[in-house]
Design a protein around this nucleic acid. Structure first.
Lengths: 206, 206
DNA sequence: TCATTTTCTGACCGCATGGCCAAAATTATA
DNA sequence: TATAATTTTGGCCATGCGGTCAGAAAATGA
């Protein structure tokens, strides 16, 4: 039986346990990105990893736990990278531009992760059948963007637009930029991000 | 066997055949909107319509054909309504505002259709396993928006932004406005649309 | 070395799905 | 009414899914 020792809510795992989990997560990312969430069965993921299907069930409580771990590992890396890039900036305009360019540059080097993340966000459902990562999962991003907008509106950089609408709009613009890039790999992602920064600078400034 | 007479690529159907198809499509819309595409099996749709499962197979070649018909009927109505509302307008700014407000007003009265359409767009896959309505299905909308932008840029209303990026951005803003409204029914859709019109007017104008 | 624990395998289970079809029921036609 | 065409029924099928399990294999430790 896999060890389930807990401390501070964190599972304590052996190195080979951790390695297996990482390997399975990586295989899941690649399979999902290639054939889509709906077709990415545990059997396919195991086959891609060169292991038996039961290994996944042994290391993960179920498919949902595996998917959640894919999201957490991938998403955590994005937040870390982009957050670091925004450190030290003060003006709202600078922050928004750094966010847009930073996330685009990071994802440019992580295409399969991006595609898999999108698939999981769209398809994964909870036990109740409702989406696990629906629109409401964006609330954290909306709040962060609204904070930047409030900063800009107070400093006079921005006009007094509806911050919620602007946040929903900008977040969707980023999401769709990536979706467009996934569909059209030859599309210039960085140029798109720069153009977006210009567009939203005009949309926001007083 | 169902009559398959073709003329001009259109199937000629009896009234009761047409009525059954319409009934099944309506049931599909309601079931998909309520429990999501993945859970909306033919059995569930038939049960909701109060008919046997085989009836659907009799009137439609398969689940895919049913889903495509749902999209075509719903989408056609939207295009008709909004298109009529844009008739006679000439300036690019007016056209964009009429589009935004028009589509919002129409969808406000067709919530279940909107939810079902979104589910199908996201989930439906072709025989090859690739999405049937992916990003590339937006090409028609992108082209239409780009045409309006070109108009505005020629007349001097708009600055010379990248039309493709703006089209992708605006289309995603509309899609996400609806998705947000579906998730938060108390959200003021018309106010959101007006705000969006203001935002993109600022983003586009010289 | 040998006993114990951890990890892996491959077969198996119950379940839901889309599709199929023979026969029954209904409707249209002569 | 009698015959033919259309429509509906309800059960059946093969498929693929996530998950489970006994036993084999490998790693660990005394």
């Amino acid at each position: 039986m896999r060890s389930e020792n807990e401390s501070d809510g964190q599972k304590r795992r052996s190195f080979i346990e951790e390695a297996r989990r990482a390997q399975i997560v990586a295989s899941a990312v690649e399979v999902i990105a290639e054939i889509g969430f709906a077709q990415a069965s545990l059997a396919r993921i195991a086959q891609h990893a060169g292991i038996s299907k039961g290994v996944i069930s042994y290391h993960f409580a179920g498919k949902d736990e595996l998917m959640v771990e894919v999201v957490e590992r991938t998403y955590g890396l994005i937040a870390e990278t982009v957050g670091a890039r925004m450190q030290g900036l003060s003006s709202a305009t600078e922050l928004l531009r750094a966010y847009l360019l930073g996330v685009a540059e990071h994802m440019r080097g992580h295409r399969t992760q991006l595609a898999a993340l999108g698939e999981i966000f769209i398809h994964l459902r909870g036990a109740d059948g409702r989406p696990r990562y629906g629109i409401k999962a964006n609330e954290e991003i909306y709040r962060a963007l609204e904070g930047i907008y409030a900063l800009g509106q107070e400093s006079g950089e921005f006009w007094h637009f509806d911050r919620r609408v602007m946040a929903v709009t900008q977040a969707s613009a980023v999401d769709n930029m990536f979706a467009y890039w996934v569909a059209y790999p030859e599309h210039d992602l960085d140029a798109h991000a720069r153009e977006l920064a210009d567009i939203f600078e005009r949309a926001c400034r007083s």
